[in-house]
């Protein structure tokens, strides 16, 4: 089943006298349960692509279907609702709410819903998620009381709290040491394999790419499909 389907997605940025074309007609499908990596050099358009998939930005033209429904002409609040219900985000800089503790950060996206679920049920699920990512003993720690790896674990748990159809991760290991990066990658691989969570990464980290079932290379605003070996050969050619 196709979670996302992009057809001819173009994105132009109007910078006054000049126009920058970030995406030149991207076609991409991501199936449920995939562990996909988008790689590409700086300025290739991968961040723009993830922004559009994450409903944080809008394409200039082209069609974007999320769970077989076209994402078009939606206003800010409609897109906010889609982000809240369908997409989980893991940021490079963790992006936790500093005044909330671990369990509150995990619950936060669920609490801002128009119709929040029952408090006890949500707390139980958030606690389970915290335990799944190894943060059981740190439920009431604030983000500044946690290490970088622990913070990213909170971000992963938060991304999963709303039970999204897709988790977008922007360079999730870029600010972590190698040992912690391995732990975080293992955690996400485990979540993908055991719980069927669909991940879409933007990363340069070869350790992440090693686990990817599918690698999508983006160059000059266009998608180049292939295996990791093919992309690595292309990159070194």
């Amino acid at each position: 089943m196709s979670i996302i389907k992009l057809q001819g997605i173009k994105k132009e940025y109007d910078l006054g006298k000049t126009k920058v074309i970030a995406l030149k007609g991207v076609d991409l499908e991501v199936q449920k349960g995939e562990f996909t990596v988008v790689m590409g050099p700086s300025g290739s358009g991968k961040t723009t692509l993830l922004n559009i998939i994450g409903c944080l930005d809008r394409q200039t033209s082209g069609r974007y279907d999320l769970e077989d429904k076209e994402v078009v002409g939606k206003d800010f609040d409609d897109l906010a609702a889609i982000r809240n219900e369908k997409i989980g985000f893991i940021f490079q800089m963790f992006n936790l709410i500093p005044v909330l503790d671990v369990i509150e950060n995990i619950e936060f996206p669920c609490l801002v819903r128009q119709v929040p679920e029952a408090k006890a049920k949500l707390r139980a699920r958030a606690t389970q998620l915290a335990e799944d990512v190894g943060l059981g003993p740190y439920l009431h720690h604030k983000p500044d009381e946690l290490s970088g790896g622990q913070r990213q674990r909170v971000a992963i748990a938060r991304a999963l709290a709303t039970q999204p159809v897709l988790v977008l991760a922007d360079e999730p290991t870029a600010n972590l040491d190698s040992k912690t990066s391995d732990q975080i990658i293992d955690l996400m691989v485990h979540l993908n394999k055991d719980k069927g969570v669909t991940f879409l990464f933007s990363t340069h980290d070869p350790r992440v790419m090693k686990h990817a079932r599918r690698v999508v290379r983006i160059a000059d605003g266009k998608i180049v499909e292939g295996t990791l070996e093919e992309h690595e050969r292309a990159a070194h050619a």
Binding site: D77, A80, R83, F89, M93, N95, L96, T162
Partner: peptide, 16 residues
Amino acid sequence: TKEIGTMMAVGVRRRS
């Protein structure tokens, strides 16, 4: 600003 962006990303609405 970044904190507000995070809130928006996870679905907080404008009026909130």
